[in-house]
Structure formats: C-alpha cells, structure tokens
Write a protein that binds this DNA or RNA. Structure first.
Lengths: 125, 125
DNA sequence: AGAGACAGTATCTATTTGATACCGAGCACT
DNA sequence: AGTGCTCGGTATCAAATAGATACTGTCTCT
C-alpha cells in the first residue's frame, strides 16, 4: 500500500494501515475527543466552560485536543480581542455529523456501565 | 477513588470523573478497541487472524486489548488444547451491542476521511 | 499598587505504546 | 536424533503521550 486512499476507487477500509479512514479513527480513539465533542453538542462553549464540564482534563491536554479537532475541521476556534480573553469553540457541520455516532457510543456506555464494572469485578476475583 | 458509581440513583453522566460510564468510555477511547471489535463483527477469529486483519497492531498491544475486552465482558477467549495452539475470540451479547455504535463511528470515519485529511492540509499550510 | 479573570504555556514526571527479539510444546520431515 | 515449522503469545527496552503543577501576559477594577 502506498498513498493514502482518498480515492473512492477502492472502498475505504479502516482496518488498513495508512488508509484515510484509519487515520480518522485514530482521532476518535482518543481519550478525550468523545467528551469534548459531546460537550459541544448544545452549542458553543469557552475554554473554561469546557474544563468545568469535562472533569479531570488538564489544560494542556484540553488545548491539544481542541487544536487537533480544529485541525480536522470538527470545530472552530474563535478568539475575541477582549480582556480577560474570550475564546469560543463550536462544532462545524462535520462535527455535528460526528455527534451522531458519538452520542450512540456515550449512550451505550451509560447503559451498560454497571454491567461492565460488574464483569471486571468477577474477572479480577 | 473509592467506589465507582454503579448505583442508578443518579443519572449516569459520562462527563463526570469516576462515573461508571466514564470508565467505560475510556475503554472505547482506546486506539485499538474499535478495530478489534469491528473485526469480530462477522464471527470468531483466532489471534493471528486478528493480527492479519488489523494492520499495524503489535502482538503485545493485541494481547492487552483482548484481555481488557475480555475483562469487560465484551468478548470471550477460548483456548483449544491443540498443537500448535488455537485460541479463538468471539463477541458476547454485550460486544454485539457495542458493535452498533462502533460501526456508526467507522462509517462516519470512512465517509468523511478525505474531507478531514483535506482540512489538515489546509490547516498545516 | 495590588488582586483578579481568562486562556492558555512551560516544565517535569509517570504512564502507555510500540519495535523487536525470543519462548515452549509438539508434529513432520530427513 | 536433530532441525525446522506453527501458533499464541512474553520479555525487554526505547519512544511517544498524558498528566500534575506552576507560571505568564493583558487589561480592568478597587
């Protein structure tokens, strides 16, 4: 395999290394992406609002995650030249598309969480 | 951290640290989970078959991922006492449930991959 | 002058991931 | 009897990533 398959001559195959869709999956297979995108479901939020909503994320990692998502065109970053500074993040159309499967994942997690935690306890015993 | 909130007195909230659903999300926010579960969509596979299908995963990481998913009850691991050894992995009901949102994610990735790669190129320029 | 808000950086450490080499049991072949 | 092969992993070490914590710059308000 050579070039990134952005052509549609071949069906995109996320299992193939170097396939574009695999590259994209790597973004979602990120600890924080699901949470950040999910947090922006109801509209634009500022950096600090995101930090409050998503417990446990450090500012460095928040910045990294946001920049990566901005780079991919999932969200926009708008800086207002005020003091104190105001920066708002908002999903793009692409980001709102992503929201659909991401919500599905989150719902699955919330539905089956207790069962999974129980499985772990059995396994570890 | 002491107890994971597996009670259903509170609505599960994946944004909250220490919430069970957050713990579960962390499993999905793993680089390989989506691929491994997706690979098992059509039935049981052996270790080496998984390695072939999922390009780029190393044996160590494959083992880690499979053990974690087994621990969570997403798949089963069956060892046949043969030589050479045969070990088969298969999704549980829980795993097949997970397959639904995971397929949604993969479809999203395959659909929008080229657009995202294009976005990155613009951003990096 | 000093404190505070906000959106981050800088720095250092801990944890995860990855590359690569190797192992053990048994069969098949020479 | 020795050699090589298959399969499903481990072992070991290096590299990349995530996390904890402290700090910065700008302006405004007291």
């Amino acid at each position: 395999m050579e070039t990134i398959a952005s052509s549609s001559a071949f069906p995109p195959d996320a299992f193939a290394k170097d396939c574009a869709s695999r590259v994209v999956l790597d973004r979602i297979g990120d600890r924080w992406t699901v949470l950040v995108v999910g947090a922006l479901a109801d509209g634009r939020l500022r950096f600090s609002e995101l930090r409050t909503r998503i417990e446990g994320i450090t500012p460095k990692v928040m910045t990294q995650t946001l920049r990566a998502l901005e780079r991919d065109g999932v969200l926009t970053r708008t800086v207002y030249a005020e003091v104190p500074p105001r920066v708002e993040y908002e999903l793009t159309d692409l980001g709102r598309d992503l929201l659909v499967p991401i919500d599905a994942i989150r719902h699955w997690a919330e539905q089956h969480a207790s069962r999974i935690v129980a499985n772990r306890e059995v396994y570890d015993r």
